[in-house]
């Protein structure tokens, strides 16, 4: 894979305030990369620099092979931006907003009209297209806000905390939309302070705090950094089945701990996916049917806590 974004030691100071202090990372083409950190960590400033809104104090980044400091217009053509705060004209309709922003990205005519119709379908607002945005709920506005960002089919989409302040249903819809966009080949840089969102969406995560990247990698890599094992929960039909399966698994190497609770066998393992295959094989061998599986990785919240001594939402 090639990198669609490569940030090199980005620094941003506002007078004495050091908002970003030398951040470096890359995003591979087709990847969802999350910047996870508490409010004020420097996530939005980083996105603002990468989207060419703010010039970095020092450092640079290549987006689609173009320098954010020397080729900002080329960079802007590669990216789509979904800002944290709604950036829409509320007195215009959803269709008018999309039409205006599409024109700002050089779209016009039939192709723009067709793309607007596609996006309205994608964000589930085709039947509300002619309503003024000011009449929409917060979740609907968020969806229009996202629609504007992906109207021109950017190769790389920057999404800055797109689920802040909305209801669970709208949040679910947005997360599903991000995954769908990624399946269609769009790379995504997603910032959030919700550990669950980063965990659900991301191929890789950068944990940012006080303007510094304090950890970076896949979720397993990150959790390995803090040395936490995974928890594999196997749900079975009966309590006796749980005991039988637990007995069968005791001889399997790599399982650090086995316990049973009612209809559940709980394994503590370094790699749950590897252990799962072995567990399923042993269950089949003794005739126990596994009804469901739950893998709990050592989560990112724990990593952040381990690295900073603070919770993400402190």
């Amino acid at each position: 894979m090639t990198a669609i974004l490569e940030a090199r030691n980005l620094v941003k100071h506002y007078g004495d305030v050091k908002a970003v202090q030398g951040i470096s990372f890359h995003i591979e083409d087709g990847e969802i990369f999350s910047l996870l950190g508490p409010n004020g960590a420097g996530k939005s400033t980083t996105i603002s620099m990468l989207s060419t809104l703010y010039a970095p104090t020092s450092g640079d980044a290549l987006v689609g092979g173009h320098s954010i400091t020397r080729q900002p217009m080329q960079v802007r053509a590669v990216i789509g931006v979904v800002p944290q705060d709604l950036a829409l004209y509320e007195d215009l309709t959803a269709h008018e907003n999309l039409n205006f922003w599409g024109q700002m990205y050089g779209m016009s005519g039939q192709s723009l009209r067709r793309r607007i119709a596609e996006v309205l379908d994608q964000i589930g607002l085709a039947d509300k297209a002619t309503k003024a945005v000011k009449t929409f709920s917060g979740g609907m506005k968020r969806r229009v806000n996202i629609g504007v960002g992906l109207l021109h089919k950017p190769r790389l989409l920057f999404m800055d905390e797109p689920t802040v302040g909305i209801d669970p249903q709208s949040r679910r819809a947005i997360l599903d939309m991000v995954k769908d966009l990624n399946r269609q080949g769009m790379s995504v840089l997603y910032t959030t302070h919700y550990m669950e969102e980063a965990a659900e969406l991301s191929n890789r995560v950068g944990i940012i705090d006080h303007g510094r990247m304090i950890a970076l990698g896949t979720q397993p890599e990150l959790t390995q950094q803090v040395g936490q094992d995974e928890t594999l929960r196997l749900h079975v039909a009966a309590e006796a089945d749980a005991a039988a399966l637990a007995d069968a698994l005791r001889a399997v190497p790599g399982i650090k701990q086995i316990s049973t609770t009612d209809h559940e066998v709980v394994l503590i393992v370094p790699e749950a996916e590897e252990a799962l295959a072995s567990a399923v094989g042993h269950a089949n061998a003794i005739g126990v049917k596994i009804r469901s599986v739950d893998i709990q990785e050592p989560n990112l919240e724990a990593v952040f806590l381990h690295l900073t001594g603070r919770a993400l939402r402190d």
């Binding site: 989207s51 800002p83 950036a87």
Partner: peptide, 14 residues
């Protein structure tokens, strides 16, 4: 203040 100006400035618009 409402964010539409920054959004304009990150589009390919001078």
């Amino acid at each position: 203040a409402q964010g539409t100006l920054p959004r304009l400035l990150v589009s390919p618009t001078a």
